[in-house]
Amino acid sequence: MGALRKGFYWDTESLIVVGLFTALGKAASLLVALLGGGMNPVTLLLKNGIATALLVVMVARVRKFGALMLYTLVAQVVSFLMTGGIMVSTLPLYLLGALVADGLIALCGGYRKVWAVLVGVAIYDAFGRLFGLAMSFLMARENVGMVGVGAVIVAFGYLGCLFVGLPCGAKFVKELRHAGIIREV
């Protein structure tokens, strides 16, 4: 084993939390698929809602500037494996969106305030969906209808994020803080 280094900004616990929540997000998609079958409005709302709620919990637990950027980096490498590299070209844009969301959380009072985290995650999700839609336009630019179907699905998913994910995330964070699983200070 090589020499050991000290004083990292990202401690091992934060890195593990990010990795675990990325894995949980993918596994939760499987759970929703088992629960709701194929592509239908309820499944879409639930899937996006659960993903957003988990993201809120993750950010509230990690509580460090750059948490969303790190999550984006890991999630994009994972989606590189799952979609065959198509989404990698948008990585800089996704990172920029995450940076804006992280900056917004910091400006709104920091990671200890639940509403600041909610605002940041809402903005992050909006950026992610926009970039995803731009990518689907590149993939299906010859047929506007296909991009339109994608836009409807993305918009519906964002409704799930706003009206299911954020309230559930806020509630989870409150309860987990009460239970002492997420630290308040």
Binding site: L15, I16, L20, A23, A27, L73, V74, V77, V78
Partner: peptide
Amino acid sequence: RVALVPLMVFCRFVPEFV
């Protein structure tokens, strides 16, 4: 390390979560 540790955790724990 910032990318490697979460990625390793992801790879190891997806089957666990399933």
